[in-house]
Design a protein around this nucleic acid. Sequence first.
DNA 1: AACAAGACCTGTAAGC
DNA 2: TGCTTACAGGTCTTGT
Length: 271
Amino acid sequence: MPELPEVETTVRGIKSIESSVIERIDVFNPNLRWPISNDLSFFLDNKKILSVYRRAKYIIIKCSNAHLVIHLGMTGKLVFAKPKDTLKKHDHMQIKFANSDQVIRYNDPRRFGSAHLVKNKLEDFRLLSNLGIEPLAEEFDGNFLFTKARNRNVPIKAFIMNHHIVVGVGNIYASEALFLSGVRPSIPARRVTRKKMEVLVKNIKYVLSIAIEKGGSTISDFMNTKGEQGYFQIDHQVYNREGQPCNQCGAKIKKIIIGQRSSFFCSSCQC
DNA sequence: AACAAGACCTGTAAGC
DNA sequence: TGCTTACAGGTCTTGT
């Protein structure tokens, strides 16, 4: 469950582990995108969790002596369970908390996710050090995006999904934000006007915020595992609606491939 | 520096 | 029913 709102929902869902002590970490299957470090347990057992937060789509668990950084990839999930619950297929690791019969398990069928032990400065960690701005930050505005887009010929959709520019805009919300902005996903980034960039930024913030709100509404169910519920509540205007009528004008939604990713748009509303 | 394409995996649904 | 194929929410790495 990977787009930014789902990651944010996950972070909020596990926020309660802050100030808990990790009793032990068990790695059942280290094979993720990168192998899980085998000294995770050595460094983090009996350490206190100071805070849990998100940067881009990374979940950061700050412990007293190091950071545990988790990415959910395409299909990763963090779910609460009881220690005696039987392991599920694709459970890769488990964090057990002291004085509690609660564990968090990381499950990831496609293994595009990862988990890292960061012992040194977090800012220097190679996967975090070159990231762009947070989409919900105030400094992310029309001027910022317009300026960054000078001399950039990539399609605007690929541009807003480039996390060296802005992080956390995934394939679904890129299509949705472009539709709401009346901007065709295939046009070169440099050709989007300043005014359109302002609208686009507002809509990126809008779709992500709404999705976080909706995901947030299922947080109480989160511990019961139904993590994906929030995701499917969201009404998509264009995503995955090829051939169906546009909700604004009735024209058929089209699908094209941009940067090897499916992209959906209305050729009448978006130019 | 910028961009395109390849790579990593399994599960599911559609097509034959 | 069973086999084959296409495709899926991400992003790092390699090659032009």
